[in-house]
Nucleic acid binder design. Structure first.
Lengths: 227, 227
DNA sequence: GGAATGCTTCGGTTACGATCGAACTATGAA
DNA sequence: TTCATAGTTCGATCGTAACCGAAGCATTCC
């Protein structure tokens, strides 16, 4: 029949939607854990685990153990290149991904990313905080301004306590759905906790989706809404 | 979950063994009929027909009717590029398809790639042309030098005629088996034709393998051999 | 130590799609 | 016209693999 390497095996690996999601999620170079990738892929943890071992066996991704977590990266630049070129093909063909899932619409609005707020509300809050001078961007970094400290204290956050922790106070995090940054770091986490305590939002168990209460919608729009 | 182009659909198309066989068979740029492709893929005609329409719908291949035959080509160079890079991945991973056919060894030495010479002889010739100053690389591009024009004319190639055509004179093409570049473009094509006319080589029908005559081996080594 | 978290393995279900043969259409040859 | 070749469509069969939940390890936290 034909010579040449066996394309189909590798292509079939990329060809499963869940695995394609996993690979795409790894495209930005970050290392993600199995659980995070399961979320990204939209499948259960056990399913994702199976996918991950297949991908690792084919050396498309590289696992790395760290404590009780297992982090995954794309294996090398060549793999990233192949994915990139596949994306190019797919994009040109106009087959943009249609993502059907019941939780998806809600997730687009508000969801948990690690421990902080992501989704439309996340980026909205972030840009508002920038506009109000609470945060200040400096290249890839983001920092709290002097007046920002007052704002956060008034919001109900104990900055001193946060700064004792070893995680950075402010970090920016790229949002996959919005393609814009939102606030991460211990401050981002504290703000989400704070909004939960205020009764603005509540996390749904077993999902990354965040439910926003009626009162929360009003208060959030009042404080972070666009003018 | 994430936005972005839908990789998985296209990858899944390539991921089926029968379809992968079809695509690989088309890699050399020849147009093949549905029956021929069914044969290559090792499936029945009806099955192949289904595969072909899926591939065509995704614009990975381009159908062309001619009489009661239907010819298929790869849609464009981008598709070929994706397949090449997938082959590269698969080759590095060591998942070479075990195809111990008699022609395989020969293919490694010399074969047709879209109309020009590929395989060991292809890359050997290319690097020699570079070393002799006939060709000059400029980033990803490759061009014919002034002295190179004399060389080609002496070789028996009508450069003026080639330059009237709309395909680029010189292009470099990555070889999956050698993982090095060889000469493509209308010049690459003309050189192969020329060497056939000189009686150095002859294409075997129904295969990409190129047979090198005794006289051709001597002449080729004399002109393009390593010192 | 126990509790909690992160991941893997196993068993059983389910669904999708690859496959074939047969019937059907279209084009060309005799 | 009739026959032959090339391809498509249809219906039915059959395997494979994706999926989940539950149970099992492993690691860290308290």
């Amino acid at each position: 029949m034909k010579e040449g390497p066996d394309i189909s095996h590798i292509a079939a690996l990329i060809g499963d939607p869940a695995r394609a999601n996993i690979l795409t999620a790894l495209m930005d170079g970050r290392a993600l854990t199995a659980s995070e990738l399961a979320e990204e892929a939209g499948v259960g943890l056990s399913t994702a685990s199976g996918h991950l071992s297949k991908l690792a066996e084919a050396e498309l991704i590289a696992p790395r153990k760290s404590g009780r977590h297992k982090y995954f990266n794309l294996a090398d630049a060549e793999v990233a290149g192949v994915l990139e070129s596949l994306m190019g093909l797919a994009a040109r063909r106009g087959t943009t991904r249609v993502r059907t899932g019941p939780r998806d619409a809600q997730m687009q609005v508000a969801r948990v990313c690690y421990n902080h707020l992501a989704g439309q509300l996340g980026v909205q809050m972030y840009s508002k905080l920038l506009a109000q001078g609470v945060l200040m961007e400096d290249g890839e970094d983001v920092a709290l301004t002097a007046s920002g400290r007052d704002f956060m204290t008034a919001f109900g956050i104990d900055l001193d306590a946060l700064e004792k922790g070893r995680t950075r106070l402010c970090r920016s995090c790229l949002d996959w759905s919005e393609r814009r940054t939102h606030l991460a770091g211990s401050l981002g986490r504290a703000m989400l906790t704070c909004m939960e305590q205020k009764g603005w939002m509540s996390r749904e168990t077993g999902s990354r989706a965040i439910h926003v209460t009626k009162a929360g919608q009003v208060a959030f729009a009042d404080m972070f809404g666009v003018d």
